[in-house]
Every structure is written in structure tokens, then in C-alpha cells.
Simulated assay, not measured.
Amino acid sequence: MRGVSVTVSLRRKTGVDEGNNAVYKTVSETVDDVLILQGDQDAASGNVRPDGIVADATAYFPKTFQGSLRGAMVTDPAGREYKVVGDPFPPQVSYVPTKWNLKVPLTRTGADIG
């Protein structure tokens, strides 16, 4: 099984301006071998979370990915844009049997819908 390449975009603080206001820049990186499945893959809760957020897709990132996804945007090869829900982190065990250990719920942004 092989995943696809996605673009992960994050806003990073790059400094402050002369008024001491934070200055941000969007930084993007390509992550290879990501599995993307339609809907929320958590059968117990369906695709609607208690706070009303709908998970339109679930991405599985490979163990080789070490970054944070909090506040990130993910763009798939078809150009669909998703926002990462929450602050996903991998399980705290080393014996995950596949090469994908980071389950990431995603919601469509609407920027590409239409």
C-alpha cells in the first residue's frame, strides 16, 4: 500500500515588527506517503464530533513525519484543502504495526468547494 503526497501549510511566527506586533509567514512542506480516507474513521462516533465539527476525511501520516499539525492546512493531490481538527499526536507506543501512526481528522475548508 502506498499513500499520496500532500502539502502541509502552517503559519509560523517569524518575528515582530517595529510596533512589537507578531509577524507570521505561511510555511509549506510536502509530506509523502499519506493515506487519505473519506469521512471519520472512528466508527464509534460517526462523522459528527460532540462539538459539532464534521470530519470530512481522515489522513494517516507516516511514522517518518515528526512535525506538529496543530492549526495546519492539508492539500491533497486533487487540490482539495482541509483544516486539521485539534492537535493530533501519534500513540505513545512504539509497536504500531504499520508505517502510518498518526491519525488526523480533517474538515474541508470551503476554499476549493464550488
Rank of each mutant, 00 (worst) to 15 (best):
M1A: 14
G3K: 06
G3S: 01
V4Y: 07
V6Q: 05
T7Q: 12
S9H: 12
K13W: 05
G15F: 12
G15P: 03
V16A: 07
V16F: 13
E18T: 13
G19T: 10
N21I: 06
V23Y: 08
T26S: 12
T26I: 14
S28P: 10
T30A: 13
T30I: 15
V31H: 08
V31D: 08
V31A: 02
D32A: 15
D33N: 15
Q38P: 10
A44L: 14
G46T: 08
V48P: 00
R49C: 10
P50F: 11
G52K: 01
A55S: 15
D56S: 12
A57F: 10
T58D: 03
T58S: 10
A59C: 12
Y60H: 13
P62S: 08
P62K: 10
T64E: 13
F65I: 01
Q66T: 15
L69V: 11
M73H: 07
V74N: 09
V74Q: 04
D76Q: 02
D76K: 05
P77V: 05
G79H: 05
G79A: 04
E81P: 00
E81V: 09
K83P: 00
D87L: 01
D87I: 04
P88T: 02
P88V: 04
P90G: 12
P90W: 03
P90H: 05
Q92Y: 10
S94Y: 11
V96G: 03
T98F: 00
K99W: 06
K99F: 02
N101S: 08
P105H: 03
L106P: 03
R108N: 04
R108Q: 08
